[in-house]
Amino acid sequence: MTTTVSISEVTKNYGRIKAVRGASFDLDQGEVVALIGHNGAGKTTLMKLMLGLIRPTGGRIEVLGDNPAAGQFAGRRRLGYLPESVSFDTALTGRETQAFYARLKREPVARAFELLDAVGLGDASHRRVGTYSKGMRQRLGLAQALIGHPQVLLLDEPTTGLDPELRQTFYEAIQQLATTGTTVLLSSHVLTELEERAGRVIIMNRGVKVADGSIERLRNIARLPTKIWLQVAGLPPGELPSWLPADAPSRRVNGRVVEIDADPERKIELLHKATASKSAVEDLDVIPPSLDELYAHFLRKAELTP
């Protein structure tokens, strides 16, 4: 696997404020990586460091074989970037804006115009950007970020202002780019979106990387309970199934639903007991710890670590 971005012991200080503290990780070709954390965790700072917009206080950064902090960063042409707050010249039309960025990257303007159709701005491309809604400006930002089929794509809150249909279209485009070798690093507070789409998650807390791995790996590390939901017929209100071990935390949620908190090593045991029991289990769901729950767990753990 080819490494496209390498971050090694990177720090970034703004006076007394330590925005990034000793962060280290690599990003590989074709990866879709979610970078998550609270506001001020260092996510946007890391992206700006990768772009060469700011220089690190310490450590080493390499992007597509170049040092972004160097005076000449040739790799920037092979990057795509969507900032959290997009801003364009409101006097230009969508087509004029897209043509401007295509020429900056020395890419064919005609192909850049095709991206306007891809993000649903084809019919509005001749209108001035000043007439665009927030969601339309976000779509224009996505279109410019995709110019030239970037080898590394950095997306900071990319789906803000997008309707559900366009969000789905956006993530389909991201997955397609990844299959052709683009490294995608995206940051979002909508963790439910990232859970199904990111192959890897990096969690930041106050400038420090506190977790890094696939969702499954983070679940194995966190050891949070899996929720088992059972719909049981004929069980009196408030009662729990007789087969349920006393040391398995459980509760009645509503009507016939029983919710069990199953430790990872007991999940199969409890499922066997449920299906083998004489009680009429009409339906069941097994719900592993969500990314929201994992995120909260690792932040709590970081706060408790001296």
Rank of each mutant, 00 (worst) to 15 (best):
Y14L: 10
G15C: 12
R16D: 10
I17G: 00
A23T: 12
F25S: 11
F25W: 14
D26L: 07
Q29G: 10
A34L: 07
G37T: 03
G37A: 00
H38E: 15
N39Y: 01
G40D: 05
G40M: 10
A41W: 02
A41R: 03
T44S: 15
G52P: 11
I54P: 09
G58F: 06
G58Y: 12
I61H: 07
L64F: 10
D66G: 13
N67R: 13
A70R: 13
A70P: 06
R77H: 14
R78L: 07
G80T: 05
Y81T: 00
E84T: 00
S85Q: 14
V86P: 02
A91K: 08
L92H: 05
E96L: 08
T97Y: 15
T97L: 03
A102R: 01
A102S: 04
P108Q: 13
V109Q: 08
R111I: 09
E114F: 03
G120M: 00
S125D: 11
H126T: 15
G130A: 00
T131S: 15
G135S: 09
R137H: 09
R139A: 03
Q144T: 14
H149I: 03
P150T: 01
V152R: 11
E157G: 07
D163W: 06
P164H: 10
F170K: 11
F170S: 01
Y171N: 09
A173V: 01
I174L: 14
Q175Y: 06
Q176E: 13
T179R: 14
T179W: 02
T183Q: 06
V184I: 11
S187G: 01
S188D: 02
T192Y: 09
E195K: 02
R200I: 12
V201W: 10
N205R: 09
G207R: 05
K209Q: 14
V210Y: 02
A211Y: 08
A211F: 05
R217T: 14
N220F: 04
I221K: 08
R223L: 04
P225E: 06
T226K: 04
T226I: 10
K227Y: 07
I228T: 09
L230A: 01
P236V: 07
P237R: 03
G238F: 14
S242W: 07
W243D: 12
D247Q: 12
P249S: 02
V253P: 05
N254A: 14
G255T: 00
E265K: 13
L270H: 15
H272A: 08
K273S: 15
A276F: 12
S277N: 11
A280E: 15
P288M: 08
P289V: 03
P289G: 00
Y295P: 01
Y295I: 04
Y295N: 06
R300L: 11
R300N: 14
E303Y: 03
P306S: 01
